[in-house]
Structure formats: structure tokens, C-alpha cells
Design a protein around this nucleic acid. Sequence first.
DNA 1: TCTGTGCTTTCACTCAGTGGAAGAAGTGCC
DNA 2: GGCACTTCTTCCACTGAGTGAAAGCACAGA
Lengths: 255, 255
Amino acid sequence: MAGGSREPGRSVTSRVLAILDAFDADHPQLTLTDISRRSGVALATAHRLVRELEASQMLGRDGEGRLHIGRRLWELGELAPRRLLEVAHPWVQELFVTTGENVHLAVRDGMEVLYLHKVYGRRAVPIVSRIGGRLPMHPTGVGKVLLAYEAEWFITSYLGRKLERPTPHTITEPGRLARELAAVRAQGYAFTHEEMTLGSCSAAAPIVVDGRPIAAVGVVVSSHRARELPRLVEPLLAGARQIAREYGRPSRTVP
Amino acid sequence: MAGGSREPGRSVTSRVLAILDAFDADHPQLTLTDISRRSGVALATAHRLVRELEASQMLGRDGEGRLHIGRRLWELGELAPRRLLEVAHPWVQELFVTTGENVHLAVRDGMEVLYLHKVYGRRAVPIVSRIGGRLPMHPTGVGKVLLAYEAEWFITSYLGRKLERPTPHTITEPGRLARELAAVRAQGYAFTHEEMTLGSCSAAAPIVVDGRPIAAVGVVVSSHRARELPRLVEPLLAGARQIAREYGRPSRTVP
DNA sequence: TCTGTGCTTTCACTCAGTGGAAGAAGTGCC
DNA sequence: GGCACTTCTTCCACTGAGTGAAAGCACAGA
């Protein structure tokens, strides 16, 4: 029975947003039935709303009828402000030129690390990070360094949670992780050794502005090249300092 | 008088989309009143819908109350499929390493060129292109080369329009542009000389798959270095071929 | 041929959504 | 300090946009 059994108080906007939220990194392509299930929006309603999203290219459909995030939504997303990324981009490229490896720019978002940029070349070890994607803080270089420089209460809160263990090498004991973070603060940078992915190691440095870590830059290498990690520290710290300096001063805008 | 005087037949979804479409490269930040005006959605209605979009972080607000595209929308946008970009990325980086200049990956979208990727370093001349942004085809390297390889009817249609003239050097006479495009096809790549922006020149090569130009790679340099353009041709063509080869074969997907 | 899955369409029912107007808040100018 | 202007917030009488269960279609696989 239509109308009478529906979810009262739920707006059309919230349904549209739930439909878009049905997509994630693990589910970039969905059937209409998938979308209805994952969003909690009735099939007929989802059908109608998806049709409108398709018409405006916010969603697209592949040859087999599966839906995905559309180009128009990507274009709108590219209008999001990104001064940090713009300032950091040339320095991230410099790190890439210097190392030839995967280079990241990331920030903390809630209790995860969010990747703003990722540069890699043909010879770089394939890695799981993705621009726009999130990973846990403790097993990633950029995440570890951002965590280390957070306020005491935040670190305590983070350590008090059940920590994900992506590999057998991931440090998940609170005491041990706290000591690791203290070491990161003492030396000013972080290393990881197969803590996020078997076969990958990383180094990362914080980008500090007005005493606060606003972002981090990191380099990920194959475990076979782990002994090169110490050589990455100086370029990382130098790049992080340059980014911080440039970001910290008012932008010379010409509107 | 509410309700009775409103626009009949306009859905809530279309209003939400109109609100998001109010933002563009020239207007990345808007007041609520701006949004209402630009979207045609009544102020009170825009207020309600914008509140919902803010709550879900599809829109954000700055310190002065101006609205902008929010981080959540950017994240969703990053889920859009991008196999071409993924395949091309390492080769684009290689071109950057080789040249140190601005490097683009672009496709045709309608009668414009759409930038999928842009890599630049500290020393690269500042240029107007933007990832997710569009520029006209005829005055840009990547656009010129994409236009040259289009079907005859498309070229005729393009040349029949009133062509934008960003600089005094822009070729806008249809006959002259047609000859220029014929030269591009003959030599297999394109150059521009201050046709899009005074002070910038470029070289570009098409990425051809199954006989069709699916994208182009280009390098933009300062006019002061225009004499280096011929040296860019070989790396551009080589990079374009590699991208085409890799893109043309079925991806080794592990679902 | 049958089963299962996904998609499309229908339509009786209803409440989510509408926007003009009033008022509040803030800024800039004289 | 007062006035003008702009922007934002809230209200609420009114109504048609929106809803989803169900039926049926299309397709694939066994």
C-alpha cells in the first residue's frame, strides 16, 4: 500500500543523498536493486530518483546497466576548495621526481587519514591508498605522523578504540603504539614496516602550521627497498617545511 | 502566497541539482541569496535545501558564511570511474619528469576539451587549465589535436560556430583553422603559440585507440621556451602510444 | 521450460514541500 | 547615531509532488 507505509519525515533530499552514499570504494558500481537495498529507499522511488540523477549526469550507467558516480558529480567535486593541495602539489611532484616512488598528501579526518593527493610512476609498488579514500591512522606513515602530533586527549581516545590489524606487523597494543608515537614526536617523522600492507614500507613527515599538524606528506616503497627509508627523511622534512611556509602565509589572490 | 504560485512540475531533486549547478569555476563561493538567484529556487526553499546539503557535507560554509562545494561531494566525485586516468597517470608523470613543465591529460566533451589531469612543478609557467575544467578546443594544444582527429561532420560543425578568441593570436577563421587541423593530421601532433593565453605555448599528441582519438596528452611551456616545443614531440608521441596500448587491452581485473 | 533476479510501470493516497512576507542581523555610509 | 541596503531566518496556509506495494516484463541460467 503506497503512501501509508512509507517512512514519515524523510525528505526527498535525504533520499537522494542516501542513493549517492550507497556508492563507496568497495562498491563503485551498483544495480538499481543494490542501490535500493543499500539506501533504504523503495525500489520504485529509487528508480525515479536515479532516473533524474542519470539525466543530469550525476550518475552514469555502464554497458551492462550498472550505475556509477557520473562525470558531472566529479566535475562539481573538483570545485571544492583545495588551497592546501594547490600549494602542496609542486612539492609533492618534487618528492616524486627525487624518489620515483608513491608520494602522498593526506590529512586527518575524524579518526582516519584522508588522501588528498597521490603521485606514482611506472615502477612504484602498487598500493591500496586512493585519492578521496580513507585508511586507518596507526598503520600508515602519514596517519602515524598525524596521530603523533595530535592533542593528548585525541591520542588517548584513539588508543582506547579497537584498532584494526591489516597485517601481522600492525602495532595494535595501546602501550606499544603510544611509545611508537612518542618516538615519532622525538624524531619528527614516522616510518612503517608492512603495517598497512605486506610488501610496503613508508616514511612520512608532518606539515605543521601555527604549531598544528594540518597534513602530512609520505612516501611508500617496496619492502625490498626498505633500507632506503632513512634517505627519504630529509627530502620529506624539507618538502613539508616548504609546504607549511607557503600555506601559512596569506595567498596572493587576484580575484 | 505560498504553494499556489510556485513552479508546477519541478521536482525537489531538480531543485537540489540546480543549487549544486549554481557553483562553477568563476563562482566557487556563493551566498545563499546568490544560490537562490542563480538556481531559480525561492530563497526560503533554497535555505531549507542548502541546510540539508550542509548537514551531509555536500556543501560547506566558510568563516564569512559563504557556501562552497563540500568535501563529501568531492569524495563521492572521486568514486567516478577513471580507468583512462589510472592507465595514463604514470606516463603523464614520466612526461613531467622529462620536461619539468605543465602536463595535461584531456578528453573531448561536447565541443570543449575537459581536463582529466594536470601535473606541474614549481618552475612551470602558471596556466589557466583546471582539473575538471573545460576550455575551447581550437586554441589549446590538447583541444586542437582532438579536434583534428574528429569526424568530418564534427569538424565542419565546430568550424561553423562563432569561435572564441582568447588572444590576438587565436586562429578563428574557419579556412585557416581547417588548414591548421590538416597540418596537425599530417604531422600527428599539434602546437599552439599564445593562442589560449599570452605567454604560453604548447605541444600535444592524440591518444588513439581502435582508430579513435579518446584523449590527448599535452605540455604547456612559457613562450620564452617556445623553441623547445619540437623536442617535446617525441616524448609526447611515445607517451601517447604507451597509454593507448595499455588502455586498449582488457584490464587485468581482480574483483 | 522453469526459476530467479532485476527493472519498469501503475496509481490511490498523503504529507513533504512550497514561497511570499515579515522580521532579525549585520554592514557601510553620511 | 541613524538610515539604507543586503542577507538570512522563520512562519504557515495551501497543494501537488512524492510514495511504494504490487503486477508484469525482460533476461539469464539451469
